[in-house]
Simulated scan of single mutants.
Amino acid sequence: MLPLETLINTLTFSHFIELLRLDTQLKRRFYEIEVVKNAWTVRELARAIDTLLFERIGFSVDKVGVVKNIASKSNIQPNDFVKNPYFLELLGLEEKFEYSENDLEIAIIDHLQSFLTELGRGFCFEARQKRITFGNTHYRIDLVFYHRILKCHILIDLKVGKFDHADSGQMLLYLNYYRKNEMTEGDNPPVGIILCADKDDALVEYATSGLESELFVSKYMLQLPDKATLLKFIEEELDKTKSS
């Protein structure tokens, strides 16, 4: 652990308020190290906690890059609120050979309050299976939220399998419809999130680059990362702090 004197001389009272709301010693130790090492402001520390940086670091290939990203944005942007991955163990899905997108959607609606907590600040539930129609063809958007901070609609498309390039085309259709028909004065353009079980990052890049609309592809996971993985990263970060 970092010496108490180091924390007192480095952090403000507001930093300590944020740290005290953490529920485990391991989490607090992680954020103490990172806030000192990266000289985070109170706002940056709160953003790291609210976006579950501690939990997500266990699944990230570029762990250092994820940490640095916290302080890289001065203005609020959609990617400050869109996570990757999302942890859906809170849904309590029973063990099955396979799940359907309807199973996942029903579980989310049944545990809507917990799902909103996982989504993060600002998400307000608006609709499920929102129907939009072109001629005689109907399409349904799985979940629709309005984000009170970003001032825009958030459209979520659920996929039980791996991301496919066709998924981005479908979401782009939804976003263009909302941009033209659902935006009101003061709204920002809608944001789309494709929530899938797995994805190939290269395919995602080619399928979504160059789009005017904000479109994110995020994985969902049904369990939290291994505690040993997180502890190993914390020990490595602590060693770097001692040597610097």
Score class of each variant (00 low, 15 high):
6 T>G: 06
13 F>Y: 10
19 L>Q: 00
21 R>L: 11
25 Q>Y: 08
27 K>L: 02
30 F>L: 01
32 E>L: 05
38 N>K: 12
38 N>D: 10
41 T>R: 01
47 R>A: 13
47 R>P: 02
49 I>V: 04
52 L>R: 14
57 I>V: 08
57 I>A: 05
58 G>A: 03
59 F>N: 11
59 F>I: 00
63 K>L: 06
66 V>Q: 15
86 Y>C: 03
91 L>H: 08
95 E>R: 06
97 F>P: 01
97 F>A: 04
103 D>M: 00
110 D>F: 00
112 L>V: 03
115 F>M: 04
123 F>T: 03
124 C>V: 13
124 C>G: 12
125 F>K: 01
129 Q>N: 14
134 F>A: 14
135 G>T: 09
139 Y>K: 09
142 D>I: 01
147 H>T: 01
148 R>N: 15
164 D>K: 07
169 G>T: 10
170 Q>W: 02
173 L>R: 13
174 Y>G: 02
175 L>Q: 05
179 R>K: 11
186 G>A: 04
187 D>I: 01
196 C>N: 07
203 L>F: 12
204 V>C: 13
204 V>W: 15
207 A>V: 02
210 G>F: 07
212 E>R: 11
214 E>H: 07
217 V>C: 11
225 P>H: 03
225 P>R: 08
225 P>L: 09
226 D>W: 03
227 K>F: 10
229 T>G: 10
230 L>H: 12
231 L>E: 15
233 F>K: 00
234 I>C: 13
236 E>P: 02
237 E>T: 03
240 K>S: 15
243 S>Y: 14
244 S>A: 15
